[in-house]
Design a protein around this nucleic acid. Structure first.
Lengths: 203, 203
DNA sequence: TGAAAAGTAAACTGTTCAGTGTAAAATGGG
DNA sequence: CCCATTTTACACTGAACAGTTTACTTTTCA
């Protein structure tokens, strides 16, 4: 397999992935036939099958790929010498921005469309994702250790914040019930969440 | 159409609806063929088509039906002479209980499975549902009028409470990522939500 | 009892789609 | 120019499925 052949092959592969990404987002996995996909990718159907032996393989490839690229770390480290308010606002704002970004929403749509009737598989994937301790976890833990935050159950607080974020910045957009949020919307929502949380859990 | 014929016909119809309800929940609308459905209902396929001329008609019938029956009013009216805590706890608990009931989850699964790639239709349906002012709306408004609650934006507060409830009692269960909640779970979650909300918005 | 209403079984139409087989053609290195 | 690899066009298989047609049976009740 020579270098140039690989290059041509890679280009085709790229085109397939590109087309699949778009098509799956627009029509869903089930709504995108392999014929249609090949046509969109400007590639023969057979070539699609040369690169991905089953539709499922292509789907999983895309999802994993997007998962990976989505994991650009959100990072704000706790600092004893700064007010809680500003720090937590920055952290929540980053999460909000990520949650309602088109990239993340599109990934979620494909994944949900694909896994909706395979809850077992979904559970596994989500478990993997949840395994990593989030920046939010770390920050809250540090705040408690520092004596400026007070709560019994860390997991519960994380859950509450997560619910508040997703309930306003993810689910409505996922189902296209609400439009994309403006920067002002994001700021406003962030401020409200932070106010709510600090009012209750800061000492 | 005589009385007894109606009875036989109704039984068949009932069997169809019954089977469709189950099958749509388990396999999704797209995953349930009309042949399979007829078999599950112990009814000939033609009979299915005699009652519902298209699959779509059957689907819509089910969804509307369940919507309707789901609208058992959640009702707790604001009372000036009782502590906020207990009142709001009762109200939130009712919402929590409704949200995570199997009936509601199953309806939501069918609706989402059906509407996922038809966001326009979904938007319409949701708009209809949102039109009704909830008991929560009324209670918060009354609390504010009474001077015991304080907030600028009613809609936002309702949204926050709604997010907290759904984030812990609806979405995880919808995707079968979390198990059904026990009574204790519901109570605990309710208490935490109410504490969070009153801490911030009661005067 | 007999006619109307409803149900049944099974074959059939037409379509969509995943996945395969094959032979010809394009590509690019040696 | 020749050889490897890859791509392409296209026909094909086999399955699934919505919806229809037909010829026949059962139920109900007047």
């Amino acid at each position: 397999m020579t270098d140039t052949t690989r290059k041509r092959s890679d280009k085709k592969r790229e085109a397939i992935i590109q087309a699949a990404t778009q098509a799956f987002q627009e029509f869903g996995v089930n709504g995108t036939s392999m014929d249609k996909l090949a046509e969109l990718a400007q590639v023969s159907k057979r070539t699609v099958y040369n690169h991905f032996s089953k539709k499922e393989e292509l789907v999983m490839h895309l999802i994993k790929e997007q998962w990976k690229s989505a994991l650009v770390n959100i990072g704000v480290e706790y600092q004893c010498d700064l007010p809680l308010n500003g720090q937590l606002e920055e952290l929540v704002f980053q999460e909000v921005t990520f949650m309602c970004s088109e990239g993340h929403l599109e990934l979620a749509r494909v994944a949900i469309g694909h896994f909706f009737y395979e809850p077992e598989k979904l559970k596994d994937e989500v478990a993997q994702l949840k395994a990593q301790e989030s920046s939010l976890h770390r920050w809250l833990k540090a705040g408690k250790a520092d004596g400026r935050m007070s709560f019994d159950d860390l997991e519960q607080v994380v859950n509450e914040i997560d619910s508040l974020i997703k309930g306003q910045c993810f689910w409505p957009q996922l189902f296209k019930i609400e439009d994309t949020l403006s920067e002002d919307d994001k700021r406003r929502i962030t401020k409200n969440i932070v106010a709510l949380v600090l009012c209750r859990y800061s000492t």
